[in-house]
Design a protein around this nucleic acid. Structure first.
Length: 269
DNA sequence: ATGACGTGCAACGCACGA
């Protein structure tokens, strides 16, 4: 008897403001687990009751006031909740849970990597330095035991690693999210743990693939100046379980949208 | 290719996003 698990990840840009479209995703697409980033919500104000009513009775949150914040809501029980700090900032950018899968369980890591500010130079922009330091801590940690167990890394990693992960490779080479120092470090982290880039397993590297479109573009759909900032990685023990990955592009056009869209992954095992 | 926008906080503009 094989088990089928659907995991969605979505940078929601304020979970309280966007509950109507969160409910739409859960009702219409029914993922088993939803990982949220940028909840912008203290734990005490997280709309847990609304999720419970929709059948998502298991909630693990790591929030803070005003900024950042991550959460996992699930139809399946969540165990071993871990909130890891990076760069000793005391900010809420990671949460890990264990989810039942295929008679055993998988470890699920939900990340919100720092955006990195405007200037891609750590000498003049402390935020860029923070981003690189954060990624450096991810590299050593995700290369170890986490990579050897059945594990999934999802979230807004704030790097578009490949040429066709941005609308114009040339135009964005000096723009934070697609600079060589970031894209090389990103791939170094992934390769250090032999993590599988699930989205690129199902979409050829020559096809454009985005998960984010700026609020500032007048017609985001027609201009289509997107970037792939949200990611799904699978550890090697989960190789062979990947059935599909879908980017829910239409969600960018929903009422009061986030600037990111959900990415839905189906595993069977 | 930057930013025309959007968020939370406590303003009544600011920091931040990427």
């Amino acid at each position: 008897m094989t088990d089928r698990l659907t995991i969605a990840t979505w940078n929601i840009n304020s979970v309280r403001l966007r509950m109507p479209i969160v409910e739409r995703l859960l009702r219409d697409h029914g993922p088993d687990v939803l990982c949220l980033q940028e909840t912008k919500c203290p734990d005490a104000n997280f709309p847990e009751g609304a999720f419970r009513k929709l059948g998502y009775e298991h909630v693990a949150i790591n929030g803070q006031k005003g900024y950042h914040g991550v959460a996992v809501v699930s139809r399946r029980p969540l165990a071993e909740v871990e909130r890891r700090g990076f760069c000793d900032k005391g900010d809420a950018r990671h949460i890990a849970v264990s989810v039942p899968f295929g008679g055993t369980s998988l470890r699920l890591h939900n990340f919100y990597v720092p955006a990195g500010g405007d200037e891609p130079d750590r000498e003049i922009n402390e935020k860029f330095g923070h981003k690189l330091d954060f990624m450096g801590e991810m590299r050593s940690w995700l290369a170890g035991e986490e990579a050897r167990r059945p594990a999934v890394v999802v979230g807004d990693l704030n790097v578009a690693p490949f040429e066709h992960d941005v609308w114009s490779h040339k135009a964005l080479l000096k723009v934070v999210s697609h600079t060589p120092v970031e894209t090389e470090l990103f791939e170094e982290i992934r390769r250090a743990g032999n993590w599988i880039d699930a989205m690129r397993e199902v979409v050829p590297p020559t096809d454009k693939l985005y998960t984010w479109w700026s609020y500032r573009a007048k017609d985001w759909d027609a201009a289509d100046k997107g970037r792939r900032l949200d990611h799904v990685w699978l550890s090697q023990p989960l190789a062979g379980t990947l059935r599909s990955v879908a980017v829910l592009r239409e969600a960018r056009g929903w009422e009061k949208p986030s600037d990111h869209v959900p990415v839905m992954t189906v595993l069977e095992g």
